[in-house]
Design a binder for these strands. Structure first.
Lengths: 272, 272
DNA sequence: CGATCGCCAATTCTATAGAATCTTCTTGCC
DNA sequence: GGCAAGAAGATTCTATAGAATTGGCGATCG
């Protein structure tokens, strides 16, 4: 609502991206529900901007895949439930595993050894802190640091895989991932996150060690486990099925017959 | 040029898509070379339309991945040389293998048995025709039929994998693939294609048989081989390196200072 | 009474002009 | 020769208007 407008105090040339991220967040937060029609005028008023960047943001969103653009009929929000996120994660797993497979044997050893060092240094701190209260300031910093290392590891693998296209695809999925991670994050900033971070550190270490050892099979396996584990964790707050759509806006006969899925295949211009 | 403008006699609401396809074709035909800057005004004049649909088409193209959109600096054509196609194929292989892995055990047996039947029926015809002259009308039909079967197989696997997102990603890559297949196609419509088609039939049969047997490992391996084989074939006509790009646009002072890399990391919104 | 046809409002898409901003090239100065 | 200020060019965004399409509404006809 108004929070969206406030976020648009951004640099010139980044307005579309800001709108994209804002809408993305609203979709994952469920404020924009599945099947909902997005009118450009309404969105323009909401964000306090003109039609043009709205339209462009919608096109970009269609490219990402969260909305469907039907010619002459506007944009429709796609469903985003746990199943969808699991689907995205499956694709991400396939791609990240491929990246690891390619990166193995050609990595920057120094960078990864530094990473391994940071990881092992982080581990005992986490072991200590798992017995403390979660609101500790020190813990927050530890989580923050762990997240940084997570980004570092994945970026490093991306840039080491020798395939720019693959790296770009992974980055795109990361945008999606980040959008609903924020949702899960604000859903419960409890000790669950701290426990998960500790788990993650172990998984990261396994990946790094396998990469440094040049053991391709083990590296892929470790990455696969890592992503799978993340998927289980991050989807836990999402509704298993379309949540309150039946109560509020029963315009979609979602479960009535099988036509819905066919339609989305045919007339959608999502990204082609 | 004018051919582009003629194609825009299309229905209202499909202009963007028409522009997208036209630009896509020009990119893969090499008329729009790598690193080239796409000015909206110039494109608008070329197509005889206004800025607005051009901008939107560029955003859509960025979503597909053939151009990079840099804020406040416009669009830049991505390189498409053999290496890039190989990169795309690597991603496609990862995704299609994942699709096969997921599809294995849950396929529509009847549809695949029908497919296997058609494939085995096609095979002897190809064996016969490999000794004939390539201009034979019958051969052309055989190639056409083989292509249809190829599409049928991949679509069937896509729809059987139980992951809509994955299916959509594969479709997107197929768009990219098809665009430069046209290039290779018009480059030589010689008997090479017929030989390749025969090879493909065998590879397809291997995939289908493994799927019907429920042998996941073998199915994935067959698909991997199939894609790899296709990559080798389709990249043979593409230039190994960027041909004349160094002479045309040396405006990129990439190494001036450290800001460039930060910018490209942060701002390139190719597909976010 | 029900169905088909045509018209109208709403929305989308395109065109056009112009202001603001950013990039880049040029020029002048130290 | 290197660097800063300014100008030119391009891009992005705003705003508005008009054309095209869609979907609903009522009227007419069987």
């Amino acid at each position: 609502m108004t929070s969206a407008a406030s976020r648009l105090n951004c640099d010139h040339g980044l307005r579309r991206q800001a709108i994209v991220e804002s809408v993305l967040r609203e979709v994952f937060q469920g404020r924009l529900r599945a099947g909902q029609h997005l009118a450009t005028q309404q969105l323009a008023d909401q964000f306090g901007v003109s039609h043009t960047p709205i339209r462009e943001a919608l096109i970009s969103l269609a490219g990402i895949g969260v909305i469907d653009l039907v010619p002459n009929r506007g944009a429709i929000v796609r469903r985003v439930v746990a199943k969808d996120v699991r689907e995205i994660f499956q694709v991400r797993r396939a791609l990240e595993c491929e990246a690891v497979r390619s990166a193995c044997g050609r990595v920057d050893v120094a960078a990864f050894e530094l990473l391994a060092e940071d990881l092992t240094r982080l581990k005992p701190a986490q072991a200590r802190s798992s017995h403390r209260k979660p609101n500790d300031r020190l813990l927050m910093r530890s989580v923050e640091k762990a997240r940084q290392i997570d980004s570092r590891l994945h970026d490093l693998i991306c840039s080491s895989c020798g395939n720019g296209f693959l790296a770009k695809e992974i980055t795109r999925l990361k945008t999606l991932f980040r959008a609903f991670r924020d949702l899960a994050w604000e859903h419960d900033t409890s000790q669950n996150d701290f426990r998960r971070v500790a788990e993650e550190t172990g998984e990261h270490l396994a990946i790094v060690e396998a990469l440094l050892a040049g053991d391709r099979r083990r590296a892929v396996r470790a990455m696969s486990y890592h992503i799978r584990s993340g998927a289980r964790y991050w989807t836990r707050v999402l509704p298993e099925e379309a949540p309150g759509t039946n109560g509020s806006a029963p315009n979609r006969g979602a479960g009535r017959n099988g036509r819905d899925e066919r339609k989305s295949r045919v007339c959608v211009e999502g990204n082609e």
